[in-house]
Design a protein around this nucleic acid. Structure first.
Lengths: 163, 163
DNA sequence: CGAAATGGCATGAAAATCCATTGTATCCCG
DNA sequence: CGGGATACAATGGATTTTCATGCCATTTCG
């Protein structure tokens, strides 16, 4: 299945009082090459205190994958319930947000809270998806490799918000 | 089969004394992109104490799917009966309701009862369909993942109806 | 004739769109 | 190699549009 265009790279952008953030141009270009939507889908990351983001086309793919899984194990009643739960998580607990001409989204308040996002948003490419972090949480998390934290530190310094 | 436009996101809307509710605009837009009907189909959800909703085009698709399933297992007599039952459930126990210019439906009393809907309706995208819940029942149901309940709580707070 | 249902309109709030400014990296020509 | 000019990205602010919902008018049925 593998979508050919992958999200990669990092950036640190400001979140204004209204919750607006610019999606870095290099991530937007991937979204637009994968499909022609000018929207991204936001969801709480499964394991990290951060947000996971992707394009609508990837969401459809994810759905198809779940459906195939269900049909294969249709016999079990447990499988049915688990499917319902995962499907609801994937679509009920996510939001599709459009970005405007200058590439900005308004981060929905609920997502902002779930992702712990404050006034800075750290963008990290992750292949088929990308992540949005509160840089402080990123630096605090023990599971994040030191090399990656260096990147975050660099981005902070770049803005004169070092250490 | 995968329909390209999927239902996603969440919202909490009021149900007035006459049983009228606004269908959130982001769900309506999916209905209208899938076909040009300004109508949704309501049915009791198979596993949850809630309503399942979708567009007429999806109803047709669902029917075709059931038929294919029957042909695949045509040998078994049980399969025939199960098909009859599911088909009746899907079409007899569902209602098609139009929404007006401002996106409002009147929830049929029977559906309202089947879904346990009172004065608030929680809308949840679920990919090919969406669900309509009484938020209280949603929070009470042990099968609903905690992350999803957080969303319901958030939507309630947003209205100043916080726990 | 009365009560209830349906459709249309009005309002206030919220959200999407547009315009303008700043900063930064890139390119071209001297 | 340097300096300026140019293009693009990010941010701030304001404006226009859309949405949910209450209210009213008109119809329908008992």
């Amino acid at each position: 299945m593998a979508l050919e265009h992958l999200f990669q790279g990092s950036a640190l952008n400001a979140v204004d009082a209204k919750g607006r953030v610019s999606i870095p141009a290099f991530l937007r270009s991937v979204v637009e090459r994968r499909g022609d939507a000018r929207t991204i889908v936001l969801a709480k990351h499964e394991t990290f205190p951060a947000l996971s983001a992707y394009d609508p086309a990837y969401a459809a793919l994810k759905h198809a994958k779940l459906e195939r899984l269900l049909e294969k194990e249709e016999t079990s009643p447990d499988a049915e319930l688990e499917y319902q739960q995962r499907n609801l998580m994937a679509f009920g607990a996510s939001e599709e947000v459009p970005y405007d001409g200058s590439g900005r989204i308004v981060m929905p308040p609920m997502m902002r809270r779930k992702g712990g996002i404050e006034d800075l948003a750290l963008f990290l490419g992750a292949g088929e998806t990308f992540q949005i972090w509160n840089p402080s949480l990123f630096l605090q998390d023990a599971r994040v490799p030191e090399d990656l934290k260096d990147i975050a530190r660099y981005r902070l310094e770049e803005r004169g918000l070092g250490a």
